[in-house]
């Protein structure tokens, strides 16, 4: 299973084992769990954001801000889910720049909705 790309660069010799397809450092799994943690943090921030948008009663501006926050959360959830499914491969591909951009922009947009709710 170990292709030529599997040769480690700069990290000492790796022990040979029968199931060499699995990374002994569990890097894909750790990255998957990092995505899950980040999704959880995004959920908490979204709950606070929606609560902030709606705490002065239901008005049109608050409803729009809350809906935008939920849209950001859904966007983040979507890219995180797609990335988590690709990370089940033993040698996952590099993160696509579009995925990184969507995740970062959803976070920034969530904060900007919050600015609108605070001011």
């Amino acid at each position: 299973m170990r292709g030529p790309r599997g040769a480690a660069r700069g990290t000492g010799p790796r022990p040979e084992r029968a199931d060499a397809a699995r990374d002994p450092g569990l890097q894909p799994e750790r990255t998957r769990l990092a995505w899950r943690r980040t999704t959880l943090a995004c959920t908490v921030a979204t709950v606070l954001a929606v609560r902030s948008a709606l705490h002065e009663g239901l008005c049109a501006a608050g409803a729009v801000a809350g809906a935008l926050c939920l849209a950001c959360w859904l966007g983040f959830l979507l890219v995180a889910h797609r990335r988590i499914t690709t990370l089940t491969a033993p040698r996952p591909r590099t993160l696509a720049p579009g995925v990184a951009a969507v995740a970062a922009l959803c976070t920034a947009a969530l904060a900007l909705c919050g600015v609108a709710a605070v001011v």
Partner: peptide
């Protein structure tokens, strides 16, 4: 990104 989300959550 989690640091950013924690700051945003702190702001709210």
């Amino acid at each position: 990104l989690r640091t950013a989300l924690a700051l945003v959550g702190g702001g709210f």
